[in-house]
Nucleic acid binder design. Structure first.
Lengths: 349, 349
DNA sequence: GAGGGTTGTTGACACGTTTCAATCCGGGTG
DNA sequence: CACCCGGATTGAAACGTGTCAACAACCCTC
């Protein structure tokens, strides 16, 4: 007979530990949750029993009893969105410190799937959630609060403070910074290459760009042209080349500001295929500062969002909402930062 | 008095639904779990009560009772690893179809954190887990099986079939394909730019490359040089340029096969900075086919791994392990595919 | 009309934890 | 010596669900 453990072991719970330590279940519970209330000697006995029996606590039990679980949801638009990974890391780290587990749920841009996921969170009696809402319709989230699960909205600065917290980045400031940079380089004909204007973030970036011209005493209508594509991915960026360049060399933009790095990278590929050089023939600015913006040649000038801090802050806010009884909803706004690389240069007539 | 719901509602459980429907709790449970066992009329009554009371099931309760929760863990090396997102999508989709929630846990390349995460899964009595192990030490996973949570290893083909399932991609075949491609283009001096050889995947790719030479009747030792960097990221790729090019134009490789797209992209950036053109002066092959491999100029020839299918298959295997009592551990091996783009060209002396 | 089978429903219990009032004990005080 | 106090521990009662043996009602057959 070896000491090899049975493949299915008899469930060992708090009660069995109690028996082994010659103590009541309540005491074991105290050892686990409020060790200060229990005498040194008994604590040691119990801890010994715990490790001898290789006891692991059953979180279903405690969630059931306390009415709330110790996991939080991270409801994300799209796992493949490069913006997401940075945020996830921030949320993960902060949650780990608070002893919370993160449940990743993917809405895949679908309203229907978002609803299913919200429901799942409610069933789990999740402690809270960090959510990137799929669209302007917040009814799912309101229902969730009503179920007793609080949340923090990500990148949705327009959430009223009486319904929930939000953490976002100032898109207007980002557009403004990009605009100023290009104007400073002497560019006067700028195209804003974007996804659907239905997306609030995109609209704000556009306004920022226009305000940069206004601030410089120039009429935005005369200098900013818009090319709108149905999606914010590289394929759309590449496809947009024709439209962007339409009108011949005299008409074509001196610089393109893209609502997204993905679009920008696609566009640069398309430009290269057309024999146009960046930044000699045309400057390009992106938005997001994805990891690989630094790897293309030339490097992509872009507006960096503090992804990690965004996630981390959202989770911290959620923590405060969970623990601090006097919590008031808060709206945190980060300011993005322009990262200048090789894809922009002074205009040479 | 408006009909606005109280902000904290009285907990409504299966019993309250039962009362409302004039039926016993057991019946409500049956309606939820085995609707076929209950008569049409009562089913409708119960369903009505459920929606009137806006009942949502409490998964803590059911997990406690059944001893197993309905969520699976996805234990990932590093959320920022580009390989991961594709896998995650596959796991997500398959899990969603099976009605399972995915708990994302990030090991951040740390053995210690992996251990904490495994423990968390045990506490949650997770149904199962899809795991990318942090290193060769499988003791955490064995402990997890012993706790009754089964798992599927990802990209770890060396897991013995008597301890668990595994899904992986044939790294040897990938190296072989890359090697054949380059040899076919007439290249004879090839450098293998890689991360630490301690990583099994990397070793296998190297062997594949060497075997391509052997198969062609050439001595690998004479044609393959190795440059080993401490990590598999773009910075290391860029930094490696000096070593790769050492020895002057007559000695330098005609082509570089990188263990990783990240390395390859970094290398290409470094080569560009040195004034060397890809593929005219030197050909480059990567590994992984990350999204942006198609966006750099020239496009990166690379070995594509079926990330999505990998995740999906892992989750499917896990499902079979959970439901099928006669389950035998399985080892699935995918074959990678070479994607030829602009970064490789025939050797021109 | 008694017996037997089928279909639907019931009650009660168990899962593992936390909580809280009640109890126990030892030492200090009047 | 009676009393009380405070710290340490106990025991029992929930939390919401799933299971299962038992029971009720019904139909069919001989």
């Amino acid at each position: 007979m070896s000491t090899r453990p049975r493949s299915t072991r008899p469930a060992v719970g708090i009660t069995e530990v109690a028996r082994r330590a010659g103590v009541s279940p309540g005491t074991v519970s105290n050892v686990l949750n409020r060790p200060e209330r229990v005498a040194e000697a008994t604590r040691l006995k119990v801890e010994a029993a715990i490790s001898e029996l290789d006891y692991v606590r059953n979180s279903s039990g405690s969630s059931l009893r306390s009415g709330r679980s110790d996991s939080v949801g991270l409801l994300v638009l799209d796992v493949t969105n490069p913006f997401f990974t940075g945020v996830a890391r921030g949320v993960e780290d902060e949650a780990a410190e608070a002893g919370l587990a993160v449940v990743l749920l993917n809405s895949a841009e679908s309203q229907d799937r978002q609803r299913r996921n919200v429901r799942l969170l409610a069933e789990q009696r999740a402690a809270g959630a960090v959510v990137m809402p799929v669209d302007d319709d917040l009814s799912d989230l309101l229902w969730l609060s009503h179920q007793g699960t609080s949340w923090v909205a990500l990148d949705r600065g327009d959430v009223a403070e009486d319904v929930g917290c939000s953490v976002s980045v100032d898109n207007h400031a980002g557009g403004l910074a990009a605009g100023r940079h290009l104007i400073g380089l002497g560019h006067e004909r700028i195209t804003f290459l974007t996804g659907p204007f239905a997306i609030e973030q995109v609209r704000r970036r556009h306004e920022g760009l226009r305000d940069a011209f206004t601030d410089a005493g120039m009429d935005p209508d005369a200098h900013v042209r818009v090319v709108e594509q149905p999606m914010l991915n590289p394929q759309q960026g590449e496809r947009a080349v024709d439209t962007v360049l339409a009108g011949g060399p005299r008409q074509r933009p001196q610089a393109v500001f893209c609502a997204n790095d993905q679009l920008a990278l696609g566009l640069m590929k398309g430009l290269g295929r057309r024999g146009l050089r960046v930044p000699d023939d045309i400057s390009v600015v992106g938005y997001d500062n994805v990891d690989l913006a630094d790897l293309v040649h030339p490097g992509l000038t872009t507006v960096a969002q503090p992804k990690y801090d965004l996630g981390r802050t959202a989770m911290r806010l959620l923590g405060s909402e969970l623990n601090d009884p006097g919590h008031r909803h808060e709206r945190v706004l980060f300011t993005p930062e322009l990262v200048v690389r090789g894809s922009t240069a002074a205009y040479r007539p």
